[in-house]
């Protein structure tokens, strides 16, 4: 009886493995890249079909970036990982040795096909006259920023404010005062970027929202361009979105060639065009020139240039008891 049941089950399993083994990819990504990959994946599937005749499927998984990275560390079989901060890919090496330490060297531009930056969204007519970072620390202004402890988006906003002070001749002490005052103006610390968007746009909290440029345009598209205005600060941070294939997984699933091609497609002209369509700043030089007029040229600095490295920034600013926690210590 049992045998009767098991045999067909095994056959089904065997066939399903044969049918899907080499023709699917799992892309584990961060929270707000859904819309971008909804466009990029079909384009790549078409491209791959035309090139090799092979039909493939690409499965997406989205969520808070650290949580996503943690599931891959804990065994989620992701062929590729696409994040909005390099530390969330570094952790695959640090915790589980799933990728080599120098993963960023394997693709052009340190494996960063697209980027964004932290900008402001204010209410129509800009009633509080918010033009630059200085205006956010005024006593009567409320700013919505996602929690830097739980959100990459929030970390970038925090570091952008810090960098603004340094780039204007201030020192670390001044920068600390500045971000302290800034975060005293934050009434709600949402755990992620989308939560902050909801708080600002739907709950009517705060005079300004600091979030990624691509999120800001998405808000305008979804909720109406007549309700909000985008304000570009004089300087902000370059929020790089790195990509990597997960060696241990692609070798086991024999999908390395496909995963590599998929990642390279991010850097192709077609891939960069799709990124630009979703308000992600293209990082390949030819594409930067092509989409120049769509992105306001503001001064952007890399995290590495101002803070040394991400791990240093994490340690001095976001670790338990570090500067961000001191803002709230009584």
């Amino acid at each position: 009886m049992l045998k009767k049941l098991i045999t067909p089950l095994l056959i089904v399993l065997l066939f399903s493995r044969l049918a899907f083994a080499e023709t699917s990819l799992l892309n584990v990504s961060y929270d707000v890249s859904r819309e971008y990959y909804k466009d990029l994946n079909p384009a790549f599937i078409k491209y791959w079909k035309a090139k090799t005749g092979e039909s493939i499927t690409i499965n997406q998984s989205h969520g808070g970036s650290s949580k996503q990275a943690r599931s891959v560390v804990d065994g989620l079989a992701a062929d590729v990982i696409t994040m909005n901060r390099s530390p969330d890919i570094d952790v695959l090496f640090d915790k589980a040795k799933l990728i080599p330490k120098d993963w960023q060297k394997r693709l052009p531009n340190a494996s960063v096909p697209t980027a964004s930056t932290s900008v402001f969204l204010v209410r129509k007519g800009n009633p509080k006259k918010i033009k630059d970072w200085d205006d956010l620390v005024k006593p009567d202004v409320q700013v919505v920023i996602p929690n830097p402890k739980t959100s990459g988006n929030g970390k970038y906003s925090y570091l952008a404010a810090w960098g603004y002070v340094l780039k204007n001749g201030g020192d670390d002490a001044k920068a600390k005062d500045f971000v302290t005052t800034l975060f005293k103006n934050v009434p709600v610390l949402d755990t992620g970027g989308r939560g902050a968007t909801t708080t600002f746009a739907q709950r009517d909290i705060g005079d300004a929202l600091i979030t990624f440029e691509n999120e800001v345009f998405l808000i305008q598209k979804e909720l109406g361009a007549d309700k909000f205005e985008v304000v570009y600060p004089s300087i902000s941070v370059l929020a790089e979105n790195p990509v990597a294939l997960v060696d241990k997984v692609v070798d086991k699933r024999k999908t390395r060639a496909l995963a590599q091609a998929y990642l390279e497609y991010h850097f192709s002209e077609a891939g960069q065009d799709i990124a630009a369509k979703h308000f992600l700043r293209p990082q390949v030089e030819s594409a930067v020139a092509k989409h120049y007029e769509n992105f306001k040229p503001i001064k952007l600095f890399k995290v590495e240039d101002v803070f040394g490295s991400w791990s240093k920034a994490e340690k001095t600013h976001f670790a338990d008891g570090a500067i961000f926690d001191q803002i709230y210590a009584k």
């Binding site: 808070g64 650290s66 949580k67 943690r70 952790v91 640090d94 915790k95 929690n147 402890k149 739980t150 755990t191 994490e314 976001f318 670790a319 338990d320």
Partner: peptide, 8 residues
């Protein structure tokens, strides 16, 4: 959750 997000 915050501590988990920091891989702690």
């Amino acid at each position: 959750i915050t501590k988990l997000e920091q891989y702690d």
